[in-house]
Amino acid sequence: MNPLLRSVMRLFAAPRLNMREDYARVRRLQRQLAARPVPRYRAVDLRIDTGDGEREVPVRVFSPREQRREEVLLFLHGGGWVTGDIESYTPACATMADLTGCVVASVDYRLAPEHPFPAGLEDCWRIIRAILEAPWRLGAESAARIVLVGDSAGGNLAAASCLLLHERGLPMPQRQILLYPVTHWDHDPRTTPFLSARRHGADYRLTSTEVEDYLELYVPDPALRRDPLVSPLMASDLDGQPRTLLITAELDLLCDEGEAYGRALRDAGTEVRIHRVEGALHGFITLPRFARSLREAYEVIDEFLDAPLPDGGTP
């Protein structure tokens, strides 16, 4: 990124919103942007029982123009646990379906601050369990065809859901794709152990202040933010986790903590591929499909999906 563009991006990253007060405005803006004309797509809206007898979670299922794979990508959206939904992520999920040739199912989990931790996480792990028990609901022939995908806070929820499923001895996905996930509780440039948070905490797409605001809304009790279900990198037991593709963005403050989680999984015996997209910003999965960083990420995702299944089968 040249110095002029770098300076312009820093101007846009300057704090202009207080997420603790303006999250509702951000939600409205996201929906307005997503309502712009997008390429035609096929989608069906479902409501899936979480198994607790009390709540059904909305899920939007996208079919690709040309289905080339039998995998179903179960997608958890980003937005700091506070913003984002199946409406605002519809363009990104339609692109994901077309570029992978997979069915994509987007989960509309509950958001903070109306529903703080662990409400959103409960929706996610319950939906994952329900789908693995009955993969035919999303058109998958077996649970092995369900691939868990999450970006940013959604990557955090994907990782935390797998930790919780393993802890409770429940079935879990065989594969997960984590896109620039939040994995640690400390994003203060003065105290964080991660260079990328110190270097990019005031730059570009996402700032340290914004992440801290999101965490305060999602987990009001500071003591709980070190819980592995909030900060997966704090987990002492990472055994039994799914084969993982972890994709980070070079100019993202979350870059180093995401890669650290990938290395921790690898040290615990999980098969992990870590790929850093050079020159990319946080949130690039929502860019138009011609964006270089997006195309590079999907090339890596395609390779991951085409690899033999963990049980020795083939995609």
Score class of each variant (00 low, 15 high):
Arg6Val: 05
Met19His: 10
Arg28Cys: 07
Leu29Trp: 05
Pro39Asn: 00
Arg42Val: 10
Leu46Glu: 09
Thr50Ala: 14
Val57Gly: 14
Val59Gly: 02
Val61Tyr: 01
Glu66Asp: 12
Glu66Arg: 13
Arg69Thr: 01
Gly79Glu: 14
Tyr89Gly: 07
Met96Leu: 09
Ala105Asn: 14
Pro118Asn: 04
Trp125Gly: 03
Ile127His: 06
Ala130Leu: 02
Ala134Gly: 02
Gly139Trp: 11
Leu148Val: 15
Gly150Val: 13
Gly155Leu: 06
Asn156Trp: 03
Ala158Trp: 04
Leu164Tyr: 07
Leu165Ile: 08
Gln174Thr: 04
Val182Lys: 01
Asp186Glu: 06
Leu195Ser: 10
Ser196Met: 03
Gly201Thr: 07
Leu206Trp: 06
Thr209Val: 03
Thr209Leu: 15
Glu210Tyr: 13
Leu217Cys: 03
Tyr218Gln: 00
Asp221Pro: 00
Pro222Val: 05
Leu229Val: 08
Arg243Pro: 00
Ile247Glu: 10
Thr248Leu: 02
Ala249Cys: 08
Ala249Val: 04
Ala260Ser: 13
Ala260Gln: 15
Tyr261Phe: 13
Arg263Val: 02
Gly269Gln: 07
Thr270Val: 05
Glu271Arg: 15
Tyr298Pro: 00
Val300Trp: 06
Asp302Val: 02
Glu303Lys: 03
Phe304Trp: 14
Pro310Phe: 13
Pro315Ile: 06
